[in-house]
Design a protein around this nucleic acid. Structure first.
Lengths: 205, 205, 205, 205
DNA sequence: GATGAATGAGCTTTCATTCAT
DNA sequence: AATGAATGAAAGCTCATTCAT
């Protein structure tokens, strides 16, 4: 029962934050949408920002669990294995975003509309994501699978790619097949944009 | 005189928004920092969000002008020319971000802390940026310089790369040489991450 | 069992009211301190103010019983008897205050922090005290033991003396011997402050 | 104009605090009574308790100024002079209370219905009053005019007398002539209650 | 009798905006 | 144009009280 109320509050909040923005959403709106009394809110969450933080944490926990946590690079031996894994990760990300579209919109769009304290909390998630990506890259670099570009820079750039790729997959082209989106992202990430010309040995056929 | 006040207000606002966030910054703080009276604010800006929008517009106008506006792909003939141009664009972006670091932080971090109406305005800037990039890509594709990946997807992904690359260049590693950052971004963008090996038959089928 | 809970609630409330003030003490604090559930409170007291009133009533009942109720002036015949009795009353008051220091603090300091209705209830206690004192004085006046000052005025002034003497004895100088405090108060009350000099006809030598 | 508003707010607050109690009086009531907007309140006072404190301070400042500050005991030589001065002080106190009846009621009845922080502030006023009285007594004792009773105890008891004498003069018997009230209080304070009889050997040894 | 989750009215304070000077 | 005192709507949070179990 109790957990049920917390869930209803979170669902209502996610919807409203996404629709009208974090600031414009009043606690009164959330509880009205969840069908409970104003005071009940404070039985389940310390205050408004902490509910937001709970939502964000949920999103990142799920995303991390389904992606990077499952793919330690160590075992990879060939570029093909890497390619396959990267594509699988892209797939997972896109599907996760589409499955949790409201939370996704929340993280991508509302993440910054918070009091500084809570914002710092969210930034930590992004930093952890960047860290994980950097470690993944360094592993792959040591295996000779990936170029020696500075790992942290690339990690942050990848974070940006992921943010906007999710944005595209979820909101701009919600009907494009995940497989093809993941394929394109993978190709871009691993091989770049340049058309392989005669100057480049063979490239992809 | 009038312009001077508007400038002072904008400078103060940019500083304060960046430091404490858009919501936490009161008009009273802005005018105090600018050294004018409360009422004077409304002689120069319609209201608080519109000052924010003015700052954002300024940032994008400058960025667009210094980058894409100057680089119509049409004239390019070879991949090498494209590479040179892309690198130059990366350089410009990084330098622009570093030169206008406060506005950059503002756009990257505060862009969403606005009432829906003004937020839509900002999103339009991003969409315009994505459009411009998409057109640029399509031009390059028609010239056979760039692979036939879906231009809008790639454009959005590039937007994400740029956002986070600026973030990295301005805040994470503000002292890294622009040249090398631009070089790395260019290499990643055009050639991808995969180490070109003899085994390289394709990152993606 | 029931009485036990009521007692625990009263003890906890007295402690908390004294420490943090009536308004700042929440029913939640009281029940937590008493080790019972929130709802249990309302099985024993009608509401928060009525618990306060119960505490106050207890204090006054005890005080009245131990002092004035035992000392009808009628039987007195001489000034010496009166002096002895007055001193005994002062002793009793001081000891009572020191024995029930928490309740004393409560009455002296928190008595007014109540909704008007309950406050009136408390004022009635003070008025009854003043009435009892006035009657006592009038009796003593009729016996020719006490000057013909207006009894009600003096009664109120004595109430004030008692309040602050308790305050002094309990909080300002909790270790001063009751006997000497009672003696000083008695001397002041009966003989006043003025040093009996030759200028006074017949004073005490 | 500004001062005028502060004055109106203070007057309204004193009236309402006195009538309905500090806690029960909302800022909304105060501003409504003063005829200004809600926000205006916070232009003139930091918050609700600080307005209360301002009222209290005003009361004590005026009272101190008109009484003790004007009567250094040093110059007194005889008991008669002391009697005259004490009576004059009682007169002043009674008149002050009657002139500022609302503030008087406020101090006597609402002084404790405050958050602990502000309450401490008020207690300091009482302590200062007791200190001043104690010094006055000690001076008079050194001149041999007053008995050697412990000065601090007597000072506190006098504080109590004053509180209740004001209470009596202002609320219980507002029409009794000040002169006679002051006379009675003086006689009580200086000579005590005991009828000076031939039997008078002393209330206390 | 006892519980404690749920209630919802209530209140202080903030702050963008206005307008008489 | 510039001022800044005044405005008043808005919202987060508290807490005494209730009631189904």
């Amino acid at each position: 029962m109790t957990d049920d109320i917390a869930r209803k509050l979170k669902a209502a909040a996610a919807r409203l934050f996404t629709q009208h923005g974090y600031t414009a959403t009043r606690v009164a709106d959330i509880v009205a949408n969840a069908g409970v009394a104003q005071g009940t809110f404070y039985l389940h969450f310390e205050n408004k920002p902490s509910l937001f933080v709970a939502l964000i944490d949920e999103f990142f926990a799920g995303l991390i669990e389904e992606t990077i946590a499952r793919h330690p690079a160590k075992r990879l031996q060939t570029g093909e294995q890497l390619s396959a894994e990267v594509e699988e990760i892209w797939m997972t990300i896109i599907r996760y975003g589409r499955k949790h579209d409201i939370l996704t919109r929340l993280v991508l769009r509302e993440g910054h509309a918070l009091p500084p304290e809570q914002r710092a909390h969210i930034n930590r998630h992004f930093e952890q994501g960047a860290d994980a990506l950097a470690r993944y890259l360094e592993d792959a670099q040591q295996l000779g699978l990936v170029k020696n570009l500075p790992a942290r820079l690339i990690a942050w750039v990848l974070v940006g790619m992921i943010e906007r790729a999710m944005h595209y997959a979820v909101f701009v082209a919600p009907n494009a097949p995940s497989v093809s989106l993941a394929g394109h992202c993978t190709e871009f990430e691993l091989l770049g944009l340049l058309e392989p010309s005669d100057a480049r040995t063979g490239g992809e056929s």
